[in-house]
Design a protein around this nucleic acid. Structure first.
Length: 470
DNA sequence: CTATGGCACGGATT
DNA sequence: AATCCGTGCCATAG
């Protein structure tokens, strides 16, 4: 099984340190570009799909001893394995076996692979093919380009089995994929949520007032549905924050923390955390995405050429060689740090990941740094600009794991949700004190605004029970 | 007069 | 050193 050679990891030079730092800061999307450009301009760098035994030419995998001819493979220098799906067990750190799916890491293919992987256990072999056909026929937004009947004819399957597969696809990770349009996608996403008042209202709005929703005609919706306009606004905010009309463009959008980022830009996650497919109660699977798949290493031929050529010519080449070596080491270091970081983080915040915002334990980057024995700025950089897809489908910034107030804000949301009459900030503060959470009134106000909850006076009475719909 | 939001300060975090 | 966060004080809206 592949492992990183620890001795090569410690930063040896200031250059190494500096580059490691700058690489850590990058999200995998950014790193992808970096790697590509580095490969382009440095002839000493090489990306290969498979390592091959130099003696018997058989595939080596990650082993250092050839499984066929049992010869020890000569030391290749720094080499790092990069896979778009680099999953490992957060407790032991040991890696899960990679499935032999072998799909290119380009965006649409990745999505297909991602979905197929989740469906693997639910599908028969030929349904699997059908799923593949459907997935590849989707348009750019991930919606069905052709009506199911057409697909059924093209694949010579029954209409009902086509519909069934579509249903399955739309309910796994990017929820709402393969829907017939944005509206359908939203409805499917809602369907997977626990039933509650908000959900019911949201459903009515999307079903019957989709046009008005797009035009932001909230007053009209409120009047038509005979629901308070404040409530409508709240539900609309909820929809915007938690649902994604274009699931293929990302996993779920999380509007809440996007005030700083451009809300129209969804990026791919750097890390995906999901429950174990076969055993939902089992350990979480953590996948740290690497930008490219394959083995990144210093080209051995190039190395040989440099040492055997004359001094004059090799001067420039040596430089390339050094840079390449450095680069590979830095990438190694980066992935090692990320792995350690996620491992500790997932272990500490397991309850948060599984049970929701309220169980987030406030931790600081410094604590983590201490735990895994690196400088705190390293953690800062590793956390910055990264996003994580959670098992419940939300996509959140990695920094959320260090949010000190998330759990409290979640409590406030619940208190407000369950209040029988609008509570003032003061009262909410007292309520929280009963639970042993001590926060000043002023702070409650701040959290309230962050969560988009209106002040007590503008909050109208909860009219529980069905939000009628004729 | 009460509930809130703005401003600013100090301590913690990065 | 720069930034973020919780809080207190004060002005203001209702």
């Amino acid at each position: 099984m592949f492992q990183i050679q620890d001795q090569s990891l410690r930063p040896l030079t200031t250059a190494h340190l500096a580059q490691t730092m700058s690489l850590l800061n990058l999200s995998n999307t950014e790193l992808h570009e970096k790697v590509i450009s580095e490969l382009a301009e440095n002839p000493a760098l090489e990306l290969i799909e498979e390592r091959v035994c130099p003696l018997c030419n058989r595939k080596l995998g990650s082993s250092v001893v050839c499984p066929v001819c049992s010869r020890k493979v000569p030391d290749e220098g720094p080499i790092v394995f990069m896979s778009p799906r680099d999953s490992y067990h957060p407790r032991t750190g040991s890696r899960y076996e990679q499935e032999d799916l072998d799909l290119e890491p380009t965006a649409p293919e990745n999505l297909t692979a991602h979905v197929l992987q989740q469906l693997a256990s639910d599908l028969e072999a030929d349904d699997r093919q059908l799923a593949y056909y459907i997935l590849s026929s989707l348009d750019d937004d991930g919606f069905l380009a052709d009506p199911p009947a057409l697909i059924a004819r093209a694949t010579r399957k029954t209409l009902s089995s086509v519909n069934e597969v579509i249903r399955l696809i739309s309910r796994v990770d990017p929820v709402g994929l393969a829907a017939s349009g944005p509206r359908d996608a939203l409805l499917i996403q809602l369907e997977l949520m626990p039933p509650c008042e908000t959900r019911t209202i949201a459903e009515s709005i999307i079903k019957d007032y989709f046009k008005e929703l797009g035009r932001k005609e909230y007053e009209k919706i409120a009047a038509d549905m005979a629901v308070g306009s404040a409530q409508i606004r709240r539900v609309v905010t909820f929809i915007q924050d938690n649902l994604n009309p274009y699931p293929a463009r990302a996993f779920w959008g999380s509007g809440r923390h996007q005030q700083t980022a451009d809300p129209n830009v969804f990026h791919n996650p750097d890390v995906v955390i999901r429950k174990n497919q076969n055993d939902p109660e089992g350990p979480l699977t953590v996948e740290i995405f690497a930008p490219i798949s394959g083995w990144l290493r210093v080209n051995p031929l190039f190395r040989k050429a440099v040492t055997s050529s004359d001094e004059q010519a090799s001067e420039a080449w040596n430089k390339h060689l050094e840079k390449a070596t450095l680069f590979v080491k830095c990438i190694q270091q980066r992935s090692n740090t990320m792995q350690q970081l996620m491992s500790t983080l997932v272990r500490m915040q397991e309850r948060f990941i599984l049970k929701g915002d309220r169980h987030l334990i406030p931790i600081t980057r410094a604590q983590i740094a201490d735990e895994i024995g690196v400088h705190e700025s390293t953690i800062s950089r590793a956390v910055a600009n990264k996003s994580v897809a959670l098992p419940d489908g939300r996509m959140v910034p990695l920094s959320l794991f260090f949010d000190r107030s998330l759990a409290i804000r979640d409590r406030i949301k619940e208190i407000v949700r369950n209040e029988s009459k609008p509570l003032t900030d003061e009262e909410i503060s007292e309520e929280l004190h009963n639970d042993g959470i001590k926060v000043a009134r002023r702070t409650v106000a701040k959290y309230r605004t962050i969560e988009g909850i209106l002040p007590a006076r503008l909050r109208q009475q909860k009219q529980d029970r069905a939000p009628l719909k004729a």
